[in-house]
Design a protein around this nucleic acid. Structure first.
Lengths: 344, 344
DNA sequence: TTGTAAGCGTTATCAT
DNA sequence: ATGATAACGCTTACAA
């Protein structure tokens, strides 16, 4: 039963027990590559540490090394499973490297304020996703290694999903099925990822020679209730679209709910496609057709990129290959039915 | 533009600028209540700090005070919105008190290992929810302030929801509607909260003089896919129940999905009630009848209790009043229909 | 009222 | 190969 006392075991305790100096203990235990310690001594130290139940004080280590071995992850909404997965993905790779992750969202605070708190904790870096990093005050992140997700930047390196393709895939799927009366629901935002999804969608429409009446472009927060409201507004219109692309699955599920509640047959009368492919997308009924984006992989990539920086490697801000996305056909899309929707 | 250099501003820098000693700066800036500093000096220090953009190094402070001002929260699965909300609730109150929260789940690690990592980070305390704290090795949490959620313990203080009532409420609702062929889907677990939900349910059945055939008691992981599988098994039985209580909403939503997929009319042929009332419960179709438990409040209470301990107050392990729960009637429950289900 | 100094648990640079 | 020793940035007696 190691460490009966209340005071945590320190290198001094280990040193005393092993009959060596504290410095030697540190050499052995800190994994210093250039540590030249006699085999026998090392053994003795290791044993003593084991026996006493020694665990290094990461704070103390951080103090002298000037790092905290912790990073922050800032997302708009942890309640959105997509962002949660980004965090989870990052957490897994950071944990392996011995880093802690401080996740936080900006629902009840501003990104700047959040960054502020993170810096007070001396985090070594941050991963920023979906909060419009470009608009951040320059000094909010000085002294910090940064990786941005889904947002090109010449200040910081970043990782991205192929958001443009996501929007295009959605549009092409609907177009191929024969839809011509297309609507879009998405947030009014400066968040690059969302803008690209939107742009991809509209470009594909344009390429197909299709225009979208302005009342079929609905702005709404990227949440379930946002999607719900937007769909209700859409359904109240004199002319209804035959299909709608939602900028994320939360919106799509809210929209689906609203449509179902209004007794609109999905997908017969109206097709819906989402984006993200969160778990719930295949739990709702009918199951949501959506564009799959691997949030965990995105988070993992961001973490690896951040790690490279933290380890002192120079990392270019030049964007790498975006994470591929793919359409997942499920139950909320079908060819438009004769006699329903917009007849031009 | 404060702090152009790369080196973070320290109390020394502030001291130099203000023309006082570093110790005085500390007195002013550390919020020491017994600090006796001349008004003029204090002003000068504050100004200098402001001008330089000083921010205290929480790690260094922690090192001398012997605390890290960080806590851990351990839950089984952050992907479950219920647990996420517990974390969020805790995070809000901890943040106000200047504490960071390190959330983590035990999907890919054991609680012990996780606690281990947390201790290495010198967290000051942990909130443990849903991972069977009772079974934790005693020394995994020595030196740590602990609050357990939904688990009575004479070692640690805790907060709890009224899980017993949750199960009972579900049963009574079904019973009142006239159901007699009742099934249960829940995890095989030693997690107290789940056991109580189950016990509350079965007690109410017993009080009503109703027994449940053993094949209608399905054990499954508390996840969507777990619920899905369990429901499929239930539907494959020669005799089907007319209603089923699921130990949480994830199970319930999986079960609902499976039933719908099998063309079982919900709620006409089969009633389903869940537990937790996560956001998605009212997004699926039909909307899930469930028992509402305020996860955020639970997390907030746990945090406040932990805070009290961290501030040195003795906190008894005696359980307080459990967080009340309430039934939310929605679309997945209805009286049993003649001619369907178990006719005894 | 202010400054000096010790020390928190480490790491890392030296002599030895 | 090992042990003093000086940081790291801060708090907190204690001395002036």
């Amino acid at each position: 039963m190691p460490n009966q006392s209340l005071r945590p075991v320190t290198t001094h305790d280990v040193a005393r027990k092993a009959g060596v100096s504290q410095a030697t203990v540190s050499q052995v235990l800190s994994g210093n590559p250039r540590a030249r310690v006699a085999r026998a001594t090392r053994e003795r130290v290791l044993e003593a540490a084991e026996a006493l139940g020694y665990r290094p004080n990461i704070l103390a280590r951080g103090l002298v090394r000037g790092r905290s071995y912790a990073i922050g992850v800032v997302v708009p909404d942890l309640t959105n499973p997509f962002y949660l997965d980004v965090v989870t993905g990052a957490q897994r790779v950071m944990a392996e490297a011995g880093y802690a992750v401080l996740p936080g969202d900006t629902r009840e605070t501003t990104p700047s304020r959040h960054l502020e708190a993170l810096r007070a904790r001396q985090v070594d870096g941050v991963i920023i996703d979906g909060v419009g990093a470009a608009a951040l005050p320059h000094d909010a992140i000085s002294e910090l290694k940064v990786v941005v997700v889904d947002e090109p930047s010449e200040r910081w390196p970043g990782v991205a999903s192929d958001a443009l393709a996501a929007g295009r895939l959605a549009a092409e799927h609907l177009l191929e099925m024969g839809h011509r009366g297309l609507a879009f629901i998405g947030p009014a935002t400066d968040v690059h990822g969302f803008r690209m999804r939107e742009r991809g969608f509209f470009r594909a429409l344009k390429d197909a020679g299709i225009a979208l009446p302005h009342e079929w472009l609905r702005r709404t927060p990227p949440t379930v209730s946002g999607g719900h409201k937007a769909m209700r507004a859409l359904l109240a219109l004199p002319r209804r679209p035959t299909a709608v692309f939602c900028a994320n699955d939360l919106i799509a599920m809210g929209a689906l709910k609203a449509a179902l509640t209004a007794n609109v047959a999905i997908p017969r009368e109206l097709s819906i496609v989402g984006c993200d492919d969160v778990e719930m997308a295949s739990v709702v009924t009918p199951e949501l057709t959506t564009v799959h984006i691997s949030a965990r992989e995105l988070g993992a990539r961001a973490a690896r990129l951040l790690l490279r920086q933290l380890e002192g490697q120079e990392v270019s801000a030049k964007p790498g290959k975006p994470l591929p996305v793919r359409l997942v056909r499920r139950g909320t899309t079908a060819p438009p039915t004769e006699g329903t929707g917009d007849r031009g």
